[in-house]
Nucleic acid binder design. Sequence first.
DNA 1: GAAACCTTCCAAAACGATTTGGATAAGCCA
DNA 2: TGGCTTATCCAAATCGTTTTGGAAGGTTTC
Lengths: 336, 336
Amino acid sequence: MSSLRTLAESLGLSVTTVSRALDGYPDVSRKTRERVTAAAEAAGYRPNAAARRLRRGSAEIVTLVLPTAQGRFNEPLYIELMRAMGEPFAKAGYDLTLMASPPGEDELRTYRRLVEGRRTDGLIVVRTRPQDPRIEYLLGTDFPFVVMGRTSAQPGIFPFVDGDGEQGFADATAHLIGLGHKRIAHVASPANLNYALFRRAGYERAMTAAGLTPRVVETEPDEDGGFEAGRFLLPTADHPTAVLCGTDRIAMGVMRAVRAAGLNVPHDVSVIGHDNLPASTYSDPPLTTMELPITETGARLAEMLLARIEGASPEGMQEVRPLRFIQRGSTAPPKL
Amino acid sequence: MSSLRTLAESLGLSVTTVSRALDGYPDVSRKTRERVTAAAEAAGYRPNAAARRLRRGSAEIVTLVLPTAQGRFNEPLYIELMRAMGEPFAKAGYDLTLMASPPGEDELRTYRRLVEGRRTDGLIVVRTRPQDPRIEYLLGTDFPFVVMGRTSAQPGIFPFVDGDGEQGFADATAHLIGLGHKRIAHVASPANLNYALFRRAGYERAMTAAGLTPRVVETEPDEDGGFEAGRFLLPTADHPTAVLCGTDRIAMGVMRAVRAAGLNVPHDVSVIGHDNLPASTYSDPPLTTMELPITETGARLAEMLLARIEGASPEGMQEVRPLRFIQRGSTAPPKL
DNA sequence: GAAACCTTCCAAAACGATTTGGATAAGCCA
DNA sequence: TGGCTTATCCAAATCGTTTTGGAAGGTTTC
């Protein structure tokens, strides 16, 4: 409704002066500035976002694109991430928005729309794959983006923060070995998810180092996948006494399978997950798990993205952080 | 990079013609149109969103503002809702975005920014309160919005879809009574959440109709709240044999409290929730619950919002839908 | 008292698309 | 041939800001 022009006319000033008064330029007298801000307040003036964006060439928006299709993913994690990033971005004058996008072909189209239509000033990429077409595409532009997670091999350097899944899973495996477990299985997420590779490698490293034989089952990273894997692993007499799961949701499914097999967690089978989902605190028993502390991660990612938008080089913006191990009730020494 | 102007120059055409060719106007020859679209394709031309918005006066965006601060809310629900609405909006040329906002004063500011800065074309309001300042504000503008949920008393008519919590909780209570339960408690969400009032009313209606005494405990709508309520209700000898919970997350907490009291679900205490969260399928035992079918709800809300954006009147856009009852393992007849 | 400086304001030019209101040329009819 | 359509194209205005490059008038400096 109220534009700069109407406001200026009602004040008997030029559009320029009103604009500069509101932006706090020093070349407008205190008296005028006060008159202008009062009038703007009274009229409920709010600059038209499109006009300002067109002129400034910046959208004042950063976007997290959430791939979401087959099954529900770790959404609470991403909402949490949004919350962690919200404040730093708001402080810098950016709206943080989330867009859900079906993965695959359409996903790249979404990115192109956002980038080439200048619909956003920066992107947060999540749920990386070892070869990630989104990142390949973004590296080909000079568009600012940050990544939660990593890729395996990508020709180019970009900012990311990731948990040290390799070390974390090695440590968790060592923890189980320390409890006395020998038959430890790993239920892994599909290898087309990048984190799955690291976690598996850590598990295998620790097992081999202890002279134990790794046993890996690959499955969908959700409760059903975990349940299936559990049903596959548990029936035999020499079933694993501990199962290290790629994600909490897999772990939930495995625990259900353990119960379905008439066994007990953690007495017969210990279970460990990863993500520290809200539900994991309240499962029966509460799930032993690990996590990348999300608040600090979000804050750091926001910082990086803002720096990139300001034109900073991505060098030195690669961080692999230790995971936090959370000991709860789903792990115990093996029976006898 | 590539603008209409550069494209036009490279083709030896006017900006007008190029624009109209790409928009499929009939006053440009087939040959020219083909030449233009080919060149646009080759140059990777994508219209500048800000410019188009400024001129068209539409942002091509609709926004769901998610209040998110104290504790994690039912995020999976809202991501699911986004997914349900994504396609109809995409088909109509709108990007659907989610913005997280701290509730309270700042929340209204977020709404004002979006509405008055024309940053979006339509809003989806969720997590309604009985007196909802966001809705009051929006009713004062003529800005298009739809609501998932209802308010108690609001001077004005607006589009909404809500589950019939009153009937649903009455039915669930009747179901428990039919199983033979007499001491049935209700753990309610705080009364400043609108749905809490309806659910409680339904519970009380069914109890009273059966000549039973309602017993209501109010608590925070999360696992901790449920746990606290459970610890309060369960220790006595004449503890409830069934607990009807305002949300699944409350129910999770209650189930944990039941176990902590050395009792069994459902043998000693039946538990019912509401929301049908992903985790509820995989809890032990799986939770009996109910839900507002989210896909249809999202589709209908999208339809309504698009109609409102087109200028349709909000009359007849009020829908209270029956809840779907999902019987799982957390309910059984009372012991003896 | 003239030159150099502030202070305060503003006209006009962007930004990149869409849309209005013709202009030009070719085809058609009588 | 002249008048009337029709088919194709385009110049210029517009959306609402921000920003550039002064201009006008008053002050200070020497």
